[in-house]
């Protein structure tokens, strides 16, 4: 009888020597124990960005909207302006740091809003089923039928581009996915014995939802928030690139990239510096989130 399992390509070569296999198992174990170098690198970058953005006014920087008329479009490494200046003589470093405040605020607030509302909807749909489920399902499908950016464009026409509105409207985009995940988790959960037991003991729906179901579904949902943060930053970047997020003179990464587009040939750093910073930040959020998810779920990754 051929041992089918040993032929599986995913398990590695069946002929691997025992010692080799042993060494690999140890390496695997070591790798799975810690969060890895990549995680710590990402976490360090994120800490740097967050701390610098939070304490921006205390860093003794030039104000982001202050023009230095003696140095217009200064290149990287100029005196007084490490990362150069833009065509209005504004310091790029200072603008990137102040721009981080917008990106991070949106990055943390929008997913929180979306997941908060999605959680309630998903719980209701998964717990009550029936027509509640049906109506919420239709609402979510309809929400998904319009590209997210279009919804945001619509909101920016209707309500203008204040930081609050950007956070709120972006938050609404995260409702469908959060609601779906919550609903699925709730469905599995409500069939479990402890829920049935609680119901048999005469617990009210509200009590069952808050005390039995909620603690069991909150963790997968929180892992999900980690994916939403970089997405929120990217979408805010797209919006401000189009000039529909926070309005000038407040600096934002997308806005800086867009403004630098005209000078791409002579002063590429105007676009490339905020591009690099934004890329590193989004990448770090993705990598850190993935490492944490891997750790929680035991080795599976890449679930974006």
């Amino acid at each position: 009888m051929v041992d089918l399992a040993s032929l599986r390509p995913v398990e590695g070569r069946a002929s691997a020597a025992p010692s080799d296999r042993h060494a690999r198992a140890i390496a695997e174990h070591r790798r799975s124990r810690g969060l890895g170098v990549v995680f710590w690198l990402s976490a360090s970058w994120l800490t740097l960005v967050i701390v610098v953005a939070a304490f921006a006014p205390l860093l003794g920087l030039v104000a982001p909207d202050e023009s230095d008329w003696m140095a217009l479009k200064a290149p990287i490494g100029s005196e007084n302006h490490i990362l150069g200046t833009d065509p209005l003589g504004r310091d790029v470093l200072s603008r990137v740091i102040y721009g981080a405040r917008v990106s991070l605020t949106v990055g943390f607030t929008a997913p929180a809003i979306g997941v908060g509302i999605g959680l309630v909807l998903g719980l209701a749909a998964g717990y009550y089923r029936g027509w509640v489920d049906e109506i919420i399902g239709i609402a979510i499908d309809s929400w998904l039928a319009i590209p997210g950016l279009v919804i945001l464009l619509l909101f920016s026409v209707l309500y203008g581009g204040s930081l609050f509105m950007v956070c709120l409207s972006l938050g609404l985009l995260f409702i469908p996915s959060a609601a779906r995940i919550t609903r699925a988790a709730t469905l599995t959960c409500t069939g479990r014995e402890y829920v049935i037991a609680a119901r048999a003991l005469g617990a009210s729906d509200l009590r069952i939802i808050t005390r039995e179901v909620f603690p069991n579904i909150i963790w997968p949902l929180l892992a999900f928030v980690m994916i939403d943060i970089p997405i929120a930053i990217v979408v805010e970047g797209s919006l401000s690139f189009l000039g529909l997020s926070v309005q000038a003179p407040t600096p934002s990464w997308g806005g800086m990239i867009s403004e630098g587009r005209e000078y791409l040939e002579a002063s590429p750093h105007l676009s490339l510096v905020p591009t690099a910073v934004m890329f590193l930040t989004v990448l770090s959020f993705n990598l850190a989130g993935d490492a944490m998810r891997k750790r929680v779920s035991g080795g599976r990754s890449g679930a974006i």
């Binding site: 970089p230 979408v235 970047g237 797209s238 990239i257 867009s258 791409l264 591009t275 989004v282 990448l283």
Partner: peptide, 14 residues
């Protein structure tokens, strides 16, 4: 991971 962290408008600029 790198590509997903790079929104379309950034890729476009590059």
């Amino acid at each position: 991971f790198a590509c997903v962290s790079m929104p379309g408008f950034m890729t476009a600029i590059l």
